[in-house]
Amino acid sequence: MGYLKSTPDANGFFGEYGGAELPPPLVPHFREIHEAYLRISHSAEFIRDLRYIRKHYQGRPTPVSYLKNLSDDCGGAQIYAKREDLNHTGAHKLNHCMAEALLAKFMGKTKLMAETGAGQHGVALATAAAYFDMECEIHMGEIDIAKEAPNVTRMKLLGANVVPVSFGGRSLKEAVDSCFQSYVAQAETALFAIGSVVGPHPFPMMVRDFQHVVGVEAREQFLEMTGQLPDMVAACVGGGSNAMGIFSGFIEDDVALYGVEPLGTSSNLGDHAASITYGEDGDIHGFRTLVLKDAEGNPAPVHTVASGLDYPGVGPEHAHLHKTGRVTYTTADDKEALDAFYRLSRREGIIPALESAHAVAFALREARANPGKSILINLSGRGDKDIDFVTETYGFGTD
């Protein structure tokens, strides 16, 4: 049996990681979600409806672009990008949000709710709620609300109720905490559409499966463009949904896979969000994975210039792929990500999300060291949401 069909196991574990540790009132609701997903995931009707949405609403397939100017600059490997920035709403997030909303309608739910960091998941879920005529509630940390103001505006225009989160670090972890607290009282009528390959089972599996379309398309497109598979595939990793989306298309091939974590401003605890590189086994938000911990063993404060990567844990499948060695996890710091942000904008006419810029930074760094090779990155989102923050904080870069 292939990897995707056999992983996770029936209890939602990817090797040692995953599972579902839930407060008793939520156990039946997550069981209901899992059972509903198993019923409809192979349903011809569900697949037909999802394919229609992806083609006629989202604008899929998104293309693979050859980044000739960056490739020439580096003088080594040839760099390609899977253009999820061209997916409707500007990122990969709509791939699973439309599917989760379709699942919610099947279950008879009337409301969608979720956390968001950079705001892309919030925008995508608000879009799905509008499409399916459902209510929408988005929890977002106050720090991220200030950094990602354009996405907050978009969510409100789409009809979502944006709930500011003012406790703790006021970022993504606290947004998840806040949304779980709100969801407990609404679980009968709402679906908590978790925004990455994190959370209790079945969400790490479900979100990966819904993002699998990215890898399927990219593999087929790259073969058509070049006649062969890429030597290296890379994606940024916070929770890790965009990475699992593209990795899943190549997981059974002889292709080197790389996850790029945010190193922030230094390797000191609190200055980065590199959960795999510096984390240890632990539990967070109802599942077991690699977690950055403080001296008391609690999830540690984290930092990265990219709000969507600002999480002290990682999807359990990434922890498993790290442990087995199938994926190599590395880092890019804020400075490298910002440099990549400016260079892709100036040299290719593509303004990337700061999250995606970490993968671009990896490609720029590795291309020189790998002449004659090919690198495919997942350009998981566009930078419209980041341009005000970047230019007001760092200026317009240099030529």
Rank of each mutant, 00 (worst) to 15 (best):
T7L: 11
D9H: 08
N11A: 15
F13W: 04
G15Y: 05
G18D: 10
G18R: 05
G19Y: 00
L22S: 10
P28L: 02
H29R: 05
E32M: 11
E32R: 15
I33L: 03
Y37N: 03
Y37M: 04
L38Y: 02
I47M: 08
I47R: 04
Y52I: 15
G59L: 05
V64K: 01
L67N: 00
L67W: 07
L70V: 06
L70S: 04
G75W: 00
G76L: 05
A77T: 14
Q78M: 14
I79C: 01
A81L: 08
A81W: 04
L86V: 09
L86Q: 11
G90S: 09
K93D: 10
C97N: 11
C97F: 15
K105N: 02
G108N: 05
T110V: 12
T116N: 14
G117N: 12
G122C: 06
V123K: 08
A126H: 13
A129V: 10
Y131C: 12
D133Q: 12
H139P: 11
M140C: 06
G141R: 15
I145W: 02
A149S: 14
T153R: 10
R154N: 15
M155N: 05
N161I: 15
N161H: 09
V163R: 05
F167Q: 14
L172S: 10
E174R: 07
D177V: 00
C179V: 08
A187P: 13
E188S: 07
A190R: 04
F192I: 09
A193S: 09
S196Q: 07
S196Y: 03
P202V: 04
P202H: 03
P202S: 11
V207H: 10
R208N: 12
D209C: 07
F210G: 00
G227A: 02
L229W: 06
D231L: 13
M232I: 14
M232T: 13
M232G: 11
G238V: 06
G239F: 05
A243E: 15
M244Q: 12
G245N: 08
G249A: 02
I251N: 15
I251K: 09
Y258M: 08
L263A: 10
D271K: 07
D283K: 13
I284Y: 04
H285Y: 03
H285F: 00
G286P: 00
G286I: 00
E296G: 09
V302Y: 04
H303I: 11
H303Y: 09
G308L: 02
V314A: 00
V314S: 01
E317Y: 02
H318D: 14
H318Q: 09
R326A: 00
T328G: 09
Y329D: 13
T330I: 05
L338K: 08
D339N: 12
Y342K: 07
A353S: 05
S356G: 06
S356H: 02
A359R: 11
A361I: 07
A363M: 07
R365S: 09
R365Q: 13
E366R: 15
A367K: 07
P371S: 02
I377M: 03
N378C: 09
S380W: 11
D384N: 08
T391A: 14
T391M: 13
T393W: 14
T398P: 03
